[in-house]
């Protein structure tokens, strides 16, 4: 564990708490992409299968369970609980059908694992989750774009999620310098970089709006 990784994890936790606060305080899921939450749940469930095979630390296991549980809860709220359910507008969240994200990532993961000779289902699903995570934020970014004016807490949610990814890149740099038994994984680096790059545009408008103290409005 290093400071970047821990700060990244905490940023991720804060983002989830902010999202829950956002849902509860406004009593609606307008501006929130259910699709992104569902993609994240697929990511967590396929990546954290090692909960059953490898024990890293209590912290690690606890966080994995917490991510799966909180994301499941958020999806349940938006899909089945009032008033979120009736206010959720699926037509605003139409970009990127789940299967068009899952299928290419699954194909790519299978190919990558064949090349690397990692043929256990857990390895293949883990690699799949690395690719899918890079795409998971895309529907949320499109929902923001549709409404243009981003509600405060929703903006913070995306900001903390982006900060988490940015801090993870610093964590990989740190680890490669200071950990003796560290093996590079370029697939992780590339998809992590792609994932972070997706946030850059949002970050720019977020920081500018905070600097000038105005509302966060995205350009058309």
């Amino acid at each position: 564990m290093n400071i970047f990784r821990f700060a990244g994890d905490m940023s991720h936790v804060v983002s989830i708490l902010v999202l829950l606060l956002r849902l509860r305080s406004s009593k609606s899921a307008v501006g929130i992409s259910l699709k992104t939450q569902e993609l994240f749940l697929i990511v967590f469930v396929t990546r954290y299968l090692d909960l059953f095979t490898t024990f890293y630390s209590l912290y690690n296991s606890f966080m994995k369970v917490a991510y799966i549980a909180s994301t499941t809860y958020i999806i349940w709220m938006i899909r089945f609980q009032e008033p979120y359910k009736s206010k959720y507008d699926a037509s605003q969240d139409s970009f990127l059908h789940i299967k068009f994200a899952v299928a290419p990532c699954a194909g790519l993961a299978l190919f990558a694992c064949l090349v690397k000779g990692e043929l256990s289902p857990i390895d293949i699903l883990w690699t799949f989750s690395i690719f899918l995570e890079a795409l998971a934020i895309v529907p949320q970014l499109f929902v923001l774009q549709r409404y243009r004016e981003v509600e405060n807490l929703t903006g913070h949610y995306v900001f903390f999620l982006g900060a988490y990814r940015g801090l993870y890149i610093l964590n990989w740099v740190y680890r490669s310098y200071y950990e003796q038994f560290y093996r590079h994984n370029w697939l992780v680096y590339v998809s992590g970089a792609v994932q972070t790059a997706l946030y850059v545009d949002f970050f720019y408008y977020y920081v500018v709006s905070k600097y000038y103290g105005g509302k966060l409005t995205l350009p058309t």
């Binding site: 990784r5 994890d9 991720h12 090692d50 890293y56 690690n60 966080m63 994995k64 991510y67 883990w126 690395i130 993870y168 964590n171 990989w172 680890r175 490669s176 038994f181 560290y182 093996r183 590079h184 994984n185 992780v188 680096y189 992590g192």
Partner: peptide, 10 residues
Amino acid sequence: AKVAAAKDEL
């Protein structure tokens, strides 16, 4: 054993 990057991460 070497741990591959990110396998022990969240």
